[in-house]
Structures are given as structure tokens and as C-alpha cells.
Amino acid sequence: MMINRRSLLTTALTFGAMKAFPGLSFAQARPLVFATFTGSWEEAHKAVLVPAFRKANADAAIVLDPMLSVDQIAKVNAAKANPPIDVMLHDPGPALVAIGQDLVEPYPVEKSAYYKDLITEAQEPMGPAPFFQVVGLTYNPDTVKTPPTSWADLWKPEFKGRVGITNLNSTLGTGWLVEIAKMRGGSEANVDPGFKALEELKPNLAAVAANPGALATLFQQGQIDISPGNFNAIQILKARGVPVEFVAPKEGAIAFKTTIHIVKNSPNRDLAFKLIEAALTPEVQTTLMKSPYLIVPTNSKVTMGGEIARILAKDTAELTQKFVFQDWKKINEQRAAWIERFNREIKL
């Protein structure tokens, strides 16, 4: 772009005008901004949710601004009165943070046509859960001949130097630690047994990845052969020819609710509500459930099919029964201390 005197002057005038008449800036004309997650989420939402929303709402303008939950919170927090985002997407931990910091509005449940059809776990009055993320065991079928069946299999001596995990910065890492603690008699309030178990896992650890995305790529490199993993991330790798398989451990796969929220003080409140409604419809959820997205639906009217029915659950009743839901309110209370402890204790 060339910068000449005219464009400089225009910019200066615009800034000046925005300063002089703050109402001018964004308040009315801004398109709906939906902060989805990066990667497969963005692809899925761009391809399915956004077209469905635009079709139902006379081609309303919408912008996807993909970023991590924590970054969404930081951005909204920095400009609470005039938030740059209208709709946020959150993992369970950050969702509670956002609610706690008063960044989201209650969902207008009484206006919603689909809220009541959601399974009970997904009915969150501060922002419903249109999707689940499922964490189970991931392994490389070329090198691991007997599929693992339990979290405890990670400790088997045959996996010496072949196990990968992530640190606690991610929902996956934290949720998995809690599950390990539970397996050894702990709970959301007491992860001590989990840390002891981690200590015993050290000889088996080949990698502690900085985030789940980095963990998944390690299968590609043969750096690790088994790890806790996200169902969707694994399906994407599998579709690209990486030898990985997902199994739900017998203790139950961990389900994280991915909740969607209207940002407080959003100038596009109505459109935000309509976008969330679109995400709750059986049509959108059915399409997202199919290949290549394979996102676990939460609307009980959706008939389970494909890989999800084969690997996870054949209907929503089985799903709620087989999945493990964690108490993130309790987890959040101590998460900072756990991250600190992980920093100090887990050195390879």
C-alpha cells in the first residue's frame, strides 16, 4: 500500500472524527464478530455455521475472528464497554472465568427455540453448549498392536519413552490430570494422587507438548506412540493419513462442554443470539457431526451417525451415560496452583 499525503490525511481525519464523535465508531455499522477457535473449529464454522446463519438472517454481515479462549477474554476485558467481539466460544474453564468477570450476558432462554432440546448437561443459562469435545486415548496402530483400554495403560513398561502429554495450560492437560487423580482416589478438589501418578509416568514420557496441537503432530513424527488426545484433532490427522486411532478408555472419555456466549455490551445482541440459535439447530449440528468435522452434537433431536456413533455413543442417552463431565468450578479454584506445581515438578 502506498502512503501518500491524502491517505494520511484521511486517516488522521477519521481518527479525529472517531475521537470527537465516539458514537460513530463501530457502534451501529460493525458486522457481527464471532470469536471461534483456530484450526478445525474455524474451518467447520466457516463452512457450516456461518452459511446457515446468513441464510436464516438475510445475509447479515459476520466476521470470524479465531483465537484461543483466554485471548478472547483478554480482548473483551481490555474494552468492556465497547467489546470488539460479540460472540465468544469457550472451554469449560475459561467460560467460568468469563462469567466470573462479568463479560457475558445470560442467554435469553425463554426466546430460544432450541435450548430446551439440548441434553441437560448442555443447558447452561449463561451460554449453552452447542458442541462437546471428547478426550480419550490416542495411539499409533502401527506400533501399538493391542489397543489400550484404560488410562492406566499409559504406565505400562512397554511404553517406556513413548508417551506424550501436554502441560496444564490447556483444558486437555488439566482435565486429563484430574481424571488421573480420580483414578487413583483423588477428585477435582484433590489432584495430589494425579501428581504422584505423573511422577511415576516420567520414565514413559517422551514429550510434554506445549499445547494439544503440538502434541498431535508428534504422532506424525513418530516421537510418541500413545497419549491422551482430543477426538476431533485425531480424526483430522487420521483423515490426512497419519496412523492414529482413538479409543474411549473404560473409565469413560472426558467430555468438555464448548459453550457459546453473548458478550456483555455487544452492539449486535440480536444477531449474536441468532448465531447461537443457528449453532443449536439439529440441522447445523447434524452436518457438523458428519465427516470431516465429526463434532459431537448436544441437541437430543440429532440422530447419531457415522464415526461418532461407532466410536463414542449411538445416541445422546448413551453419550451422557458414558462420558465423564468434570466440575470445572472446583478445578478453576486451584488451577493456578496446579500449573505452578507442574512447572516445578515435571522436568524431563
Binding site: 484461543l68 483466554v70 485471548d71 477474554i73 483478554a74 472465568v97 501436554t166 502441560n167 496444564l168 495450560n169 492437560g173 514429550a207 510434554v208 507438548a209 506445549a210 499445547n211 503440538a214 488451577r335 493456578a336 500449573i339 512447572n343 515435571i346 522436568k347 524431563l348
Partner: peptide, 22 residues
């Protein structure tokens, strides 16, 4: 990416405190 999640340097420490822990 090369150091992984258990090797903590200042930038990651900073990110962890600012982003994951707010």
C-alpha cells in the same frame, strides 16, 4: 515447539501467567 511444555523459559512463563491464569 522444540523445548516442549515442561521446559519453561521467560516468554512461556509470561504467556502462562497472562493467558492461562489471567
Amino acid at each position: 515447539l522444540i523445548g516442549g511444555g515442561q521446559m519453561l523459559f521467560m516468554p512461556m512463563y509470561l504467556y502462562q501467567q497472562a493467558s492461562a491464569l489471567q
